[in-house]
């Protein structure tokens, strides 16, 4: 038979190991950078603005995020890959829409969390990191937060896998917890790269803690613990609203949603619970 193969060979597990390794390295780079920064910060902040911490925070977090992207991106099916630009657009546009309402939150992770819920933690992490990198085309100051955004995407995927989006009231709880972790991890970036925060409102909160004598990192971490959990709780809730508005056929396009029964009433064969009345 001379015609080219029309069907694909079965997937090989050989390349999967390398990618797993890259993902692990990326996660390690981010975790290691954070631990180093937290352990070394007391002497560093006195060392003045040119301290090595800024470079370590930047390079460690960025390298980690890039490794994550390199590891995850080739493994994603095209149907997920095509959704990533949509997610980034949602991050930017809905973020700006909410920003225009003078609400004291950022809400710039809606697309990231949406992908994480539909396609899993790895896709979520890559989307978060990519979001920061692409957004830095217009605003380079978001670039250092790539690791934090990746973490939120990953945590949202983990929450979805464990069924926290199956009950509507659990979504904000998951968001709150993810916000705590994300805020704490992003705080060193704000402290060491920016020497503060980029917004005026958040800056005022940091100033208040500083006036009580806190170190810069402590003050920013506390500020992050005030803003981020609320912000992410709202984002997770909005995403729950959005995914439940998607029609079944669209939701079930995503193997992750099917396999882990991420959303209520989307089992592979038969809707769970009150299935009798739904299909006839």
């Amino acid at each position: 038979m001379s015609s080219p193969a029309l069907s694909l060979p079965s997937p090989t597990p050989a390349t999967a190991r390398n990618r797993r390794l890259l993902e692990t390295l990326g996660a390690l780079a981010i975790a290691g950078t954070y631990i180093y920064l937290v352990l070394n910060q007391p002497e560093d902040i006195a060392g003045g603005p040119g301290s090595a911490s800024a470079l370590i925070a930047l390079s460690g977090f960025l390298v980690g995020a890039v490794l994550l992207i390199i590891g995850v991106l080739p493994t994603l099916p095209v149907s997920t890959l095509v959704l990533i630009p949509v997610a980034l657009v949602l991050n930017i546009v809905l973020g700006q829409f909410v920003g225009s309402t003078l609400v004291p939150f950022y809400l710039d992770a809606i697309g990231t969390v949406l992908i994480a819920v539909l396609a899993g933690p790895a896709a979520g992490a890559a989307t978060g990191a990519l979001s920061s990198i692409v957004w830095s085309f217009f605003n380079p100051t978001v670039l250092p937060f790539a690791a934090g955004a990746a973490l939120i995407g990953c945590l949202a995927g983990v929450a979805a896998r464990h069924g926290l989006f199956r009950r509507f009231y659990l979504a904000p709880v998951a968001g709150f917890l993810a916000g705590i972790i994300g805020g704490v991890v992003s705080a060193p970036v704000a402290a060491f790269v920016f020497g503060g925060t980029s917004g005026l409102a958040t800056g005022a909160i940091v100033s208040a803690f500083r006036s009580m004598g806190d170190t810069l990192l402590a003050a920013i971490t506390k500020q992050a613990l005030i803003s981020d959990p609320m912000d992410k709780a709202i984002v997770f809730t909005l995403v729950a609203v959005l995914v439940y508005a998607l029609p079944r056929r669209v939701r079930l396009q995503f193997p992750f949603v099917l396999r882990y029964r991420v959303l209520a009433g989307t089992s592979a064969s038969q809707p769970i619970g009150q299935s009798t009345g739904q299909d006839s």
Partner: peptide, 11 residues
């Protein structure tokens, strides 16, 4: 095509 069914549907 004997049958084609979308995921999660019976009909």
């Amino acid at each position: 095509i004997e049958e084609f069914v979308f995921p999660g549907e019976q009909e």
